[in-house]
Design a binder for these strands. Structure first.
Lengths: 133, 133
DNA sequence: CGGAATCCGTAATGATACTG
DNA sequence: CAGTATCATTACGGATTCCG
């Protein structure tokens, strides 16, 4: 009787979704962090330099970019290549693991991008809802 | 020369990843919020009552569960069915749109769950790194 | 049982300034 | 250019309390 989507993926989240403090939760929070997704998507097209990344991921602050990149690098999703030249040049690109991840991430992003207008338009969102007392 | 993953998905994020304040960002933040993903995954198996949901998504507080559910309902991902009985009974389930979304979400979750141990083990993560002065 | 409302501490975030 | 450091702000999240 299990026709759930979870079973279709060969991975059943049958009792709890996830144990509260497991590695999966940690990685999930890194990947689905506000800027994590956007940085990964940005790098999925090609390697980028710090400045390019900053411009590509619109709205990100230097602090958040640095922090996000350090986290993603520590997780082995992003490769940092620094050249000790003057001026310095640092490139960021996806590792094999990072590419593996974005393969799953991009379809999700595409779906959201394709449906976002419908979704937000449906109820005007909290943006305007927050106006009421 | 465009062999990027983005193009393979028929959706190119070619210049910026996303305009800084677009509907996609909003929906993305809802879906990838800390508890959003977990609630959606929990409901992907079957509809659940409030209490069941609370137990299934381990670690979530009532406040966050309520808030997450309201957001997901407003976005049309979740259907809320209240029965005015005593005691009250409220069921939550995915809408068609919600099921559509989780179809993209579950593969990602499965991948993360399958790789999380490797990833976290690779550098011991901030959990232990935070110990050092 | 299923919430909504309040208070409050912590941690995330962002603007700015500064350094190698 | 590629960051780091500092500080002000905000929002997240939990515990508690009350209501239908």
């Amino acid at each position: 009787m299990d026709t759930s989507l979870a079973s279709l993926n060969g991975f059943g989240f049958t009792d709890g979704v996830l144990p509260s403090a497991c590695p999966t939760r940690i990685v999930l929070n890194h990947v689905t962090s506000t800027w994590g997704v956007l940085v990964l998507v940005a790098l999925s097209q090609s390697g980028l330099r710090w400045g390019e990344l900053r411009r590509t991921v619109q709205g990100i602050s230097e602090k958040m970019l640095a922090q996000t990149l350090r986290t993603l690098e520590a997780d082995g999703f992003v490769l940092r290549t620094a050249q000790p030249t003057i001026p310095p040049r640092v490139d960021y690109s996806l590792t094999d693991r990072g590419r593996d991840l974005t393969e799953h991430l991009l379809p999700l992003m595409s779906w959201i991008a394709a449906n976002a207008d419908d979704i937000v338009g449906a109820d005007a969102e909290q943006a305007s809802a927050a106006v009421r007392p």
